[in-house]
Design a protein around this nucleic acid. Structure first.
Lengths: 200, 200
DNA sequence: ACCTGAACACCGTTCAAGT
DNA sequence: ACCTGAACACCGTTCAAGT
Protein backbone atom coordinates (compact mmCIF):
# COMPACT_ATOMS: atom_id res chain seq x y z
CA UNK A 1 0.00 0.00 0.00
CA UNK A 2 1.00 3.60 -0.64
CA UNK A 3 1.33 6.01 2.26
CA UNK A 4 -1.50 8.56 2.23
CA UNK A 5 -0.49 11.88 3.79
CA UNK A 6 -3.25 13.99 5.36
CA UNK A 7 -2.49 17.00 3.19
CA UNK A 8 -1.35 16.16 -0.31
CA UNK A 9 1.63 18.12 -1.63
CA UNK A 10 1.24 20.08 -4.82
CA UNK A 11 3.61 17.77 -6.63
CA UNK A 12 2.68 14.14 -6.44
CA UNK A 13 6.20 12.80 -6.49
CA UNK A 14 5.86 9.97 -8.92
CA UNK A 15 2.56 10.43 -10.66
CA UNK A 16 3.67 8.43 -13.68
CA UNK A 17 4.34 5.31 -11.62
CA UNK A 18 1.12 5.85 -9.64
CA UNK A 19 -0.90 6.09 -12.86
CA UNK A 20 0.59 2.86 -14.20
CA UNK A 21 0.06 0.99 -10.93
CA UNK A 22 -3.52 2.21 -10.51
CA UNK A 23 -4.32 1.52 -14.16
CA UNK A 24 -3.09 -2.03 -13.86
CA UNK A 25 -5.21 -2.63 -10.79
CA UNK A 26 -8.29 -1.29 -12.58
CA UNK A 27 -7.46 -3.44 -15.59
CA UNK A 28 -7.25 -6.51 -13.37
CA UNK A 29 -10.36 -5.74 -11.32
CA UNK A 30 -12.72 -4.28 -13.91
CA UNK A 31 -11.23 -4.77 -17.36
CA UNK A 32 -9.92 -2.49 -20.08
CA UNK A 33 -13.33 -0.92 -20.70
CA UNK A 34 -13.32 0.59 -17.22
CA UNK A 35 -10.03 2.41 -17.72
CA UNK A 36 -10.46 6.20 -17.75
CA UNK A 37 -7.78 8.82 -17.29
CA UNK A 38 -10.16 11.02 -15.33
CA UNK A 39 -11.06 8.24 -12.92
CA UNK A 40 -7.40 7.32 -12.50
CA UNK A 41 -6.64 10.94 -11.65
CA UNK A 42 -9.55 11.02 -9.19
CA UNK A 43 -8.37 7.85 -7.43
CA UNK A 44 -4.85 9.17 -7.11
CA UNK A 45 -6.14 12.55 -5.94
CA UNK A 46 -4.81 14.71 -8.71
CA UNK A 47 -6.52 16.94 -11.26
CA UNK A 48 -7.94 15.34 -14.40
CA UNK A 49 -5.42 17.18 -16.55
CA UNK A 50 -2.39 15.97 -14.61
CA UNK A 51 -2.01 12.62 -16.46
CA UNK A 52 -1.45 14.63 -19.63
CA UNK A 53 1.95 15.70 -18.25
CA UNK A 54 3.18 12.10 -18.22
CA UNK A 55 1.30 10.49 -21.10
CA UNK A 56 0.55 12.45 -24.23
CA UNK A 57 -2.76 10.65 -24.58
CA UNK A 58 -4.63 7.61 -23.34
CA UNK A 59 -3.02 5.35 -25.93
CA UNK A 60 0.40 6.28 -24.55
CA UNK A 61 -0.70 5.05 -21.13
CA UNK A 62 -1.95 1.80 -22.65
CA UNK A 63 1.30 1.38 -24.57
CA UNK A 64 3.31 1.91 -21.39
CA UNK A 65 1.13 -0.65 -19.63
CA UNK A 66 1.74 -3.15 -22.43
CA UNK A 67 5.45 -2.47 -22.22
CA UNK A 68 5.60 -3.25 -18.49
CA UNK A 69 3.63 -6.41 -19.25
CA UNK A 70 6.16 -7.61 -21.80
CA UNK A 71 9.04 -6.75 -19.46
CA UNK A 72 7.49 -8.81 -16.68
CA UNK A 73 6.69 -11.67 -19.06
CA UNK A 74 10.25 -11.67 -20.38
CA UNK A 75 11.54 -11.76 -16.82
CA UNK A 76 9.23 -14.62 -15.89
CA UNK A 77 10.33 -16.64 -18.91
CA UNK A 78 14.01 -16.03 -18.19
CA UNK A 79 13.54 -17.07 -14.58
CA UNK A 80 11.66 -20.19 -15.62
CA UNK A 81 14.19 -21.32 -18.20
CA UNK A 82 16.59 -24.02 -17.06
CA UNK A 83 18.95 -24.75 -19.95
CA UNK A 84 20.29 -27.80 -18.12
CA UNK A 85 16.98 -29.65 -18.38
CA UNK A 86 16.15 -32.12 -21.16
CA UNK A 87 14.14 -30.62 -24.01
CA UNK A 88 10.61 -31.62 -23.06
CA UNK A 89 10.64 -30.55 -19.40
CA UNK A 90 12.56 -27.42 -20.32
CA UNK A 91 9.88 -26.41 -22.83
CA UNK A 92 7.16 -27.41 -20.36
CA UNK A 93 8.70 -25.03 -17.84
CA UNK A 94 8.63 -22.13 -20.27
CA UNK A 95 5.09 -23.02 -21.30
CA UNK A 96 3.96 -23.09 -17.69
CA UNK A 97 5.49 -19.67 -17.05
CA UNK A 98 3.76 -18.25 -20.13
CA UNK A 99 0.39 -19.77 -19.36
CA UNK A 100 0.71 -18.76 -15.71
CA UNK A 101 1.34 -15.16 -16.74
CA UNK A 102 -1.63 -15.26 -19.11
CA UNK A 103 -3.97 -16.57 -16.42
CA UNK A 104 -2.74 -14.14 -13.76
CA UNK A 105 -2.77 -11.14 -16.13
CA UNK A 106 -5.59 -11.95 -18.53
CA UNK A 107 -6.73 -8.40 -19.29
CA UNK A 108 -3.16 -7.16 -19.52
CA UNK A 109 -2.28 -9.95 -21.97
CA UNK A 110 -5.12 -8.86 -24.24
CA UNK A 111 -3.85 -5.31 -24.10
CA UNK A 112 -0.30 -6.49 -24.85
CA UNK A 113 -1.38 -8.32 -27.97
CA UNK A 114 -3.88 -5.83 -29.27
CA UNK A 115 -3.12 -3.99 -32.45
CA UNK A 116 -1.04 -0.92 -31.61
CA UNK A 117 -1.18 2.24 -33.61
CA UNK A 118 1.40 4.55 -32.15
CA UNK A 119 4.73 4.01 -33.97
CA UNK A 120 6.60 5.75 -31.10
CA UNK A 121 5.83 2.90 -28.73
CA UNK A 122 6.46 0.21 -31.31
CA UNK A 123 10.26 0.32 -31.14
CA UNK A 124 10.43 -0.20 -27.37
CA UNK A 125 7.65 -2.76 -27.52
CA UNK A 126 9.39 -4.70 -30.26
CA UNK A 127 12.56 -4.89 -28.19
CA UNK A 128 10.58 -6.17 -25.25
CA UNK A 129 8.76 -8.74 -27.38
CA UNK A 130 12.09 -9.91 -28.76
CA UNK A 131 13.32 -10.43 -25.22
CA UNK A 132 10.33 -12.68 -24.49
CA UNK A 133 10.73 -14.58 -27.75
CA UNK A 134 14.43 -14.91 -26.97
CA UNK A 135 13.82 -17.56 -24.32
CA UNK A 136 12.04 -19.77 -26.85
CA UNK A 137 14.57 -19.02 -29.55
CA UNK A 138 17.47 -20.12 -27.33
CA UNK A 139 15.69 -23.34 -26.44
CA UNK A 140 15.06 -24.10 -30.10
CA UNK A 141 18.64 -23.29 -31.13
CA UNK A 142 20.09 -25.37 -28.29
CA UNK A 143 17.88 -28.33 -29.15
CA UNK A 144 18.66 -28.07 -32.84
CA UNK A 145 22.38 -28.10 -32.06
CA UNK A 146 21.82 -31.39 -30.24
CA UNK A 147 19.68 -32.76 -33.06
CA UNK A 148 16.63 -32.91 -30.77
CA UNK A 149 14.55 -30.55 -32.89
CA UNK A 150 14.18 -30.74 -36.65
CA UNK A 151 16.51 -28.64 -38.77
CA UNK A 152 15.28 -25.46 -40.39
CA UNK A 153 15.15 -21.71 -39.76
CA UNK A 154 15.09 -21.45 -35.95
CA UNK A 155 12.87 -18.37 -36.17
CA UNK A 156 10.29 -20.40 -38.04
CA UNK A 157 10.40 -23.30 -35.62
CA UNK A 158 10.15 -20.84 -32.74
CA UNK A 159 7.08 -19.30 -34.37
CA UNK A 160 5.42 -22.71 -34.51
CA UNK A 161 6.09 -23.25 -30.82
CA UNK A 162 5.13 -19.71 -29.85
CA UNK A 163 1.88 -19.87 -31.83
CA UNK A 164 0.89 -23.10 -30.13
CA UNK A 165 1.51 -21.72 -26.65
CA UNK A 166 0.10 -18.28 -27.42
CA UNK A 167 -3.08 -19.80 -28.80
CA UNK A 168 -3.56 -21.78 -25.61
CA UNK A 169 -2.70 -18.75 -23.47
CA UNK A 170 -5.17 -16.60 -25.41
CA UNK A 171 -7.92 -19.21 -24.97
CA UNK A 172 -7.20 -19.35 -21.25
CA UNK A 173 -7.05 -15.56 -20.92
CA UNK A 174 -10.32 -14.90 -22.72
CA UNK A 175 -12.18 -17.74 -21.06
CA UNK A 176 -12.59 -19.98 -24.13
CA UNK A 177 -10.86 -22.65 -22.09
CA UNK A 178 -11.04 -22.64 -18.27
CA UNK A 179 -7.70 -21.74 -16.74
CA UNK A 180 -7.47 -24.93 -14.67
CA UNK A 181 -8.16 -27.10 -17.71
CA UNK A 182 -5.46 -25.33 -19.74
CA UNK A 183 -2.95 -25.70 -16.92
CA UNK A 184 -3.88 -29.32 -16.24
CA UNK A 185 -3.37 -30.28 -19.89
CA UNK A 186 -0.22 -28.28 -20.42
CA UNK A 187 2.33 -31.12 -20.26
CA UNK A 188 0.27 -33.09 -22.75
CA UNK A 189 0.00 -30.01 -24.96
CA UNK A 190 3.78 -29.63 -24.96
CA UNK A 191 4.16 -33.32 -25.69
CA UNK A 192 1.91 -33.02 -28.73
CA UNK A 193 3.83 -29.95 -29.88
CA UNK A 194 7.12 -31.85 -29.77
CA UNK A 195 5.89 -35.25 -30.97
CA UNK A 196 3.15 -34.21 -33.38
CA UNK A 197 -0.45 -35.31 -33.73
CA UNK A 198 0.39 -38.19 -36.05
CA UNK A 199 1.26 -41.48 -34.36
CA UNK A 200 4.97 -42.38 -34.25
CA UNK B 1 -23.41 1.01 -52.14
CA UNK B 2 -26.73 1.71 -50.45
CA UNK B 3 -29.39 3.70 -52.27
CA UNK B 4 -29.83 7.11 -50.65
CA UNK B 5 -33.37 8.51 -51.07
CA UNK B 6 -33.73 12.32 -51.12
CA UNK B 7 -36.22 12.32 -48.24
CA UNK B 8 -35.68 9.67 -45.62
CA UNK B 9 -38.78 7.92 -44.25
CA UNK B 10 -39.49 8.11 -40.55
CA UNK B 11 -38.87 4.42 -40.14
CA UNK B 12 -35.55 3.27 -41.45
CA UNK B 13 -36.70 -0.16 -42.51
CA UNK B 14 -33.87 -2.29 -41.25
CA UNK B 15 -31.87 -0.14 -38.89
CA UNK B 16 -30.50 -3.14 -37.05
CA UNK B 17 -28.86 -4.56 -40.18
CA UNK B 18 -27.66 -1.11 -41.22
CA UNK B 19 -26.03 -0.60 -37.83
CA UNK B 20 -24.22 -3.92 -38.03
CA UNK B 21 -23.05 -3.34 -41.60
CA UNK B 22 -21.86 0.19 -40.92
CA UNK B 23 -20.19 -0.87 -37.68
CA UNK B 24 -18.28 -3.59 -39.45
CA UNK B 25 -17.05 -1.19 -42.10
CA UNK B 26 -15.86 1.24 -39.43
CA UNK B 27 -14.18 -1.63 -37.61
CA UNK B 28 -12.36 -2.63 -40.77
CA UNK B 29 -11.39 0.91 -41.82
CA UNK B 30 -10.59 2.57 -38.51
CA UNK B 31 -10.51 -0.08 -35.79
CA UNK B 32 -12.57 -0.84 -32.71
CA UNK B 33 -11.56 2.38 -30.97
CA UNK B 34 -13.34 4.42 -33.62
CA UNK B 35 -16.69 2.71 -33.08
CA UNK B 36 -19.32 5.03 -31.60
CA UNK B 37 -23.06 4.53 -31.55
CA UNK B 38 -23.64 8.24 -32.15
CA UNK B 39 -21.39 8.33 -35.19
CA UNK B 40 -23.03 5.18 -36.55
CA UNK B 41 -26.42 6.81 -36.17
CA UNK B 42 -25.12 9.97 -37.87
CA UNK B 43 -23.74 8.03 -40.83
CA UNK B 44 -26.99 6.14 -41.27
CA UNK B 45 -28.98 9.35 -40.90
CA UNK B 46 -30.97 8.48 -37.80
CA UNK B 47 -31.13 10.06 -34.37
CA UNK B 48 -28.48 9.17 -31.82
CA UNK B 49 -31.05 7.44 -29.64
CA UNK B 50 -32.34 5.17 -32.39
CA UNK B 51 -29.68 2.44 -31.98
CA UNK B 52 -30.99 1.94 -28.48
CA UNK B 53 -34.14 0.41 -29.96
CA UNK B 54 -32.15 -2.45 -31.48
CA UNK B 55 -29.25 -2.90 -29.09
CA UNK B 56 -29.72 -2.38 -25.39
CA UNK B 57 -26.24 -0.94 -25.14
CA UNK B 58 -22.97 -0.69 -27.01
CA UNK B 59 -21.77 -4.05 -25.75
CA UNK B 60 -24.86 -5.69 -27.29
CA UNK B 61 -23.85 -4.25 -30.67
CA UNK B 62 -20.31 -5.58 -30.23
CA UNK B 63 -21.65 -8.99 -29.21
CA UNK B 64 -23.87 -9.09 -32.29
CA UNK B 65 -20.87 -8.17 -34.43
CA UNK B 66 -18.83 -10.96 -32.88
CA UNK B 67 -21.68 -13.37 -33.50
CA UNK B 68 -21.86 -12.55 -37.21
CA UNK B 69 -18.09 -13.01 -37.31
CA UNK B 70 -18.27 -16.51 -35.85
CA UNK B 71 -21.12 -17.41 -38.20
CA UNK B 72 -19.07 -16.32 -41.21
CA UNK B 73 -15.98 -18.09 -39.92
CA UNK B 74 -17.94 -21.29 -39.36
CA UNK B 75 -19.31 -21.05 -42.89
CA UNK B 76 -15.85 -20.46 -44.34
CA UNK B 77 -14.45 -23.48 -42.51
CA UNK B 78 -17.31 -25.70 -43.61
CA UNK B 79 -16.87 -24.61 -47.20
CA UNK B 80 -13.14 -25.19 -47.05
CA UNK B 81 -13.36 -28.66 -45.54
CA UNK B 82 -12.98 -31.53 -47.98
CA UNK B 83 -13.36 -34.79 -46.02
CA UNK B 84 -12.16 -36.76 -49.04
CA UNK B 85 -8.67 -35.32 -48.86
CA UNK B 86 -5.75 -36.99 -47.06
CA UNK B 87 -5.17 -35.68 -43.55
CA UNK B 88 -2.40 -33.17 -44.14
CA UNK B 89 -3.88 -31.32 -47.13
CA UNK B 90 -7.29 -31.45 -45.50
CA UNK B 91 -5.98 -29.74 -42.35
CA UNK B 92 -3.98 -27.31 -44.47
CA UNK B 93 -7.20 -26.31 -46.23
CA UNK B 94 -8.95 -25.59 -42.94
CA UNK B 95 -5.90 -23.73 -41.68
CA UNK B 96 -5.79 -21.60 -44.81
CA UNK B 97 -9.47 -20.72 -44.43
CA UNK B 98 -8.95 -19.74 -40.80
CA UNK B 99 -5.83 -17.69 -41.45
CA UNK B 100 -7.46 -16.07 -44.47
CA UNK B 101 -10.42 -15.03 -42.35
CA UNK B 102 -8.09 -13.65 -39.68
CA UNK B 103 -6.12 -11.59 -42.19
CA UNK B 104 -9.21 -10.30 -43.98
CA UNK B 105 -11.06 -9.51 -40.74
CA UNK B 106 -8.28 -8.65 -38.31
CA UNK B 107 -10.15 -6.16 -36.14
CA UNK B 108 -13.27 -8.32 -36.12
CA UNK B 109 -11.23 -11.35 -35.04
CA UNK B 110 -9.90 -9.40 -32.06
CA UNK B 111 -13.43 -8.45 -31.14
CA UNK B 112 -14.59 -12.07 -31.51
CA UNK B 113 -11.95 -13.34 -29.10
CA UNK B 114 -12.09 -10.56 -26.58
CA UNK B 115 -13.38 -11.31 -23.13
CA UNK B 116 -17.15 -10.94 -23.18
CA UNK B 117 -19.14 -9.89 -20.17
CA UNK B 118 -22.77 -10.09 -21.15
CA UNK B 119 -24.08 -13.58 -20.28
CA UNK B 120 -27.08 -13.05 -22.60
CA UNK B 121 -24.86 -13.13 -25.66
CA UNK B 122 -22.73 -15.99 -24.40
CA UNK B 123 -25.19 -18.76 -25.19
CA UNK B 124 -25.58 -17.83 -28.85
CA UNK B 125 -21.88 -17.11 -29.14
CA UNK B 126 -20.96 -20.46 -27.64
CA UNK B 127 -23.14 -22.25 -30.18
CA UNK B 128 -21.46 -20.36 -32.98
CA UNK B 129 -18.01 -21.09 -31.63
CA UNK B 130 -18.92 -24.77 -31.38
CA UNK B 131 -19.91 -24.72 -35.04
CA UNK B 132 -16.47 -23.37 -35.98
CA UNK B 133 -14.68 -25.85 -33.75
CA UNK B 134 -16.85 -28.58 -35.26
CA UNK B 135 -14.91 -28.60 -38.52
CA UNK B 136 -11.67 -29.30 -36.68
CA UNK B 137 -13.32 -31.81 -34.38
CA UNK B 138 -14.67 -33.83 -37.34
CA UNK B 139 -11.27 -33.85 -38.98
CA UNK B 140 -9.64 -35.10 -35.79
CA UNK B 141 -12.28 -37.75 -35.21
CA UNK B 142 -12.08 -38.96 -38.82
CA UNK B 143 -8.30 -39.17 -38.69
CA UNK B 144 -8.31 -40.95 -35.35
CA UNK B 145 -10.72 -43.53 -36.76
CA UNK B 146 -8.17 -44.20 -39.50
CA UNK B 147 -5.29 -44.30 -37.03
CA UNK B 148 -3.71 -41.23 -38.62
CA UNK B 149 -3.87 -39.15 -35.47
CA UNK B 150 -2.82 -40.31 -32.02
CA UNK B 151 -5.49 -41.74 -29.74
CA UNK B 152 -6.88 -39.66 -26.90
CA UNK B 153 -9.77 -37.36 -26.09
CA UNK B 154 -10.65 -35.81 -29.49
CA UNK B 155 -11.59 -32.54 -27.79
CA UNK B 156 -8.10 -32.30 -26.33
CA UNK B 157 -6.39 -33.08 -29.63
CA UNK B 158 -8.63 -30.54 -31.32
CA UNK B 159 -7.63 -27.97 -28.72
CA UNK B 160 -3.96 -28.56 -29.52
CA UNK B 161 -4.62 -28.03 -33.23
CA UNK B 162 -6.91 -25.06 -32.68
CA UNK B 163 -4.44 -23.37 -30.33
CA UNK B 164 -1.64 -23.73 -32.87
CA UNK B 165 -3.71 -22.20 -35.66
CA UNK B 166 -5.34 -19.58 -33.47
CA UNK B 167 -1.96 -18.45 -32.19
CA UNK B 168 -0.72 -17.99 -35.72
CA UNK B 169 -3.97 -16.27 -36.75
CA UNK B 170 -3.74 -13.93 -33.77
CA UNK B 171 -0.12 -13.05 -34.60
CA UNK B 172 -1.13 -12.35 -38.20
CA UNK B 173 -4.19 -10.32 -37.17
CA UNK B 174 -2.35 -8.11 -34.69
CA UNK B 175 0.68 -7.60 -36.89
CA UNK B 176 3.20 -9.59 -34.82
CA UNK B 177 3.81 -11.61 -37.96
CA UNK B 178 3.24 -10.10 -41.43
CA UNK B 179 0.19 -11.63 -43.11
CA UNK B 180 2.15 -12.76 -46.17
CA UNK B 181 4.76 -14.48 -44.04
CA UNK B 182 2.12 -16.32 -42.05
CA UNK B 183 0.33 -17.44 -45.20
CA UNK B 184 3.56 -18.41 -46.95
CA UNK B 185 4.64 -20.62 -44.06
CA UNK B 186 1.26 -22.16 -43.42
CA UNK B 187 1.84 -25.55 -45.03
CA UNK B 188 5.07 -25.92 -43.10
CA UNK B 189 3.26 -24.87 -39.92
CA UNK B 190 0.64 -27.57 -40.45
CA UNK B 191 3.36 -30.08 -41.20
CA UNK B 192 5.07 -29.30 -37.89
CA UNK B 193 1.75 -29.54 -36.08
CA UNK B 194 1.16 -33.04 -37.45
CA UNK B 195 4.72 -34.35 -37.36
CA UNK B 196 6.06 -32.53 -34.29
CA UNK B 197 9.19 -30.50 -33.70
CA UNK B 198 11.29 -33.53 -32.77
CA UNK B 199 12.98 -35.34 -35.64
CA UNK B 200 11.39 -38.62 -36.75
C1' DA C 1 9.08 21.23 -13.77
C1' DC C 2 4.65 20.04 -12.45
C1' DC C 3 -0.10 20.71 -11.61
C1' DT C 4 -4.96 23.18 -11.70
C1' DG C 5 -9.42 24.86 -13.51
C1' DA C 6 -12.08 26.03 -17.13
C1' DA C 7 -13.39 25.09 -21.67
C1' DC C 8 -14.45 22.33 -25.80
C1' DA C 9 -16.11 18.69 -28.38
C1' DC C 10 -17.26 14.52 -27.91
C1' DC C 11 -19.48 10.07 -25.69
C1' DG C 12 -23.49 6.30 -23.88
C1' DT C 13 -27.91 6.00 -21.94
C1' DT C 14 -32.58 7.25 -20.62
C1' DC C 15 -37.19 8.91 -21.36
C1' DA C 16 -41.11 11.66 -22.44
C1' DA C 17 -43.06 12.85 -26.58
C1' DG C 18 -44.05 12.46 -31.39
C1' DT C 19 -45.45 9.58 -36.02
C1' DA D 1 -43.58 -0.46 -33.31
C1' DC D 2 -40.19 2.77 -34.16
C1' DC D 3 -37.94 7.04 -33.85
C1' DT D 4 -36.84 12.04 -32.03
C1' DG D 5 -35.01 15.72 -28.97
C1' DA D 6 -33.64 17.07 -24.75
C1' DA D 7 -31.26 15.95 -20.71
C1' DC D 8 -27.74 13.81 -17.75
C1' DA D 9 -23.49 12.20 -16.39
C1' DC D 10 -19.66 11.03 -18.11
C1' DC D 11 -15.28 11.14 -21.33
C1' DG D 12 -10.22 12.86 -23.62
C1' DT D 13 -7.61 16.78 -24.71
C1' DT D 14 -5.92 21.49 -24.62
C1' DC D 15 -4.22 25.64 -22.52
C1' DA D 16 -3.71 29.72 -19.85
C1' DA D 17 -2.68 30.35 -15.27
C1' DG D 18 -0.92 29.18 -10.84
C1' DT D 19 2.97 27.02 -7.41
Amino acid sequence: MVRMPESRPYHHGDLRAALLATAERTLRDRGAGALSLRELAREIGVSHAAPGRHFKDKQALLDALALTGFERLAGALESADDPGLPLEPRLAGLAKAYLGFAVENAALLELMFTRKHDPDASAQLAASVDRSVGSFLRLVADAQARGEIVAGDPERITLVAAASLHGLAAFAANGSVPAEQALAGLDEHVHHLLHGLKPR
